[in-house]
Simulated scan of single mutants.
Amino acid sequence: MEDDVRLIPISALQHLLFCPRQCALIHLEQQWAENRYTAEGRILHERADHLGHERRRGIHTAMALPLVSEALGLTGVADVVEFDESQQTAVIRPIEYKRGRPKTHRADEVQLCAQALCLEEMLNVGIEQGALYYGKTRRRKVVVFDDELRELTQGVIADTRDLFDVNCTPPATYEPKRCDRCSLIDICQPQVMGKQRSASRWLANQLQSLDE
């Protein structure tokens, strides 16, 4: 990787899939605000976010493990990485902690797969699967890093890189189910900004019709 290429935070991949504008506000404009959902997520992460190690029943657990991929231009921190040494060949599993429940989209899976790609490069190993731990269910969801998920993750990395290179925040589009849960809604103002964009488009269309 060239020295002038900016490393992309792995968390930006999840933010991009949730909302490209949110991703840009957080990572390009350095905007942040907390609501109940982000506070619950922060509390859930508190145990895993302290750098440390544990060893129980043949499983070596590393917490808050720094990650980097020079090839992909990624950086981040894994909540938990398990090194299962109980088998003949050690099995490595990244574990990501999330509040709430498993989602219908694959944003969390992409974030976890990106962690696995970093670990594969750092440790020169292959990683077949990891897990997402959800606070509401208090259960792990196994995630298999198959070709489909790896290709999706590579595509999201490329899209996020494009957003960073353009360095421009996308316009707002109000979607109640998504926007009303976002901690940045007061900063983003999707209802107001969306109306302004619609008015600007209407005016541009009117001026174009006069020229025709």
Rank of each mutant, 00 (worst) to 15 (best):
E2D: 14
D3H: 09
D4L: 10
R6E: 15
I8W: 01
I10H: 08
I10F: 09
S11M: 10
A12S: 15
H15L: 09
L17K: 11
L17E: 15
F18H: 12
P20L: 10
P20I: 09
Q22A: 12
Q22T: 13
C23V: 00
I26T: 12
I26V: 15
H27I: 02
Q31A: 11
R36C: 05
T38C: 06
G41Q: 08
L44R: 10
A48V: 11
L51A: 14
E54L: 13
E54R: 14
R56V: 14
A62T: 01
L65Y: 14
L65H: 07
P66T: 02
A71P: 00
L74F: 03
T75M: 07
A78M: 04
D79K: 05
V80A: 04
V80W: 04
T89Y: 00
T89S: 00
A90D: 01
A90R: 10
I92D: 00
I95G: 01
Y97P: 01
R101M: 06
H105K: 11
R106S: 11
E109C: 05
L112S: 03
A114Y: 02
A116P: 02
E121S: 06
E121Q: 12
V125S: 01
I127P: 01
I127E: 02
E128K: 06
Q129Y: 12
Q129V: 00
G130Q: 00
Y134E: 04
Y134W: 13
R140V: 01
K141V: 12
V143L: 05
V143I: 15
V144L: 13
D146G: 09
E148Y: 08
R150C: 06
T153P: 05
T153W: 06
T153S: 12
Q154H: 14
V156F: 08
T160P: 04
T160N: 05
T160I: 08
R161T: 07
D162E: 15
L163E: 07
A172C: 11
Y174L: 06
P176V: 08
P176N: 08
P176L: 05
R178P: 02
R181Q: 14
C188Y: 10
Q196A: 05
R197I: 06
L203N: 09
L210Y: 11
L210G: 05
D211G: 06
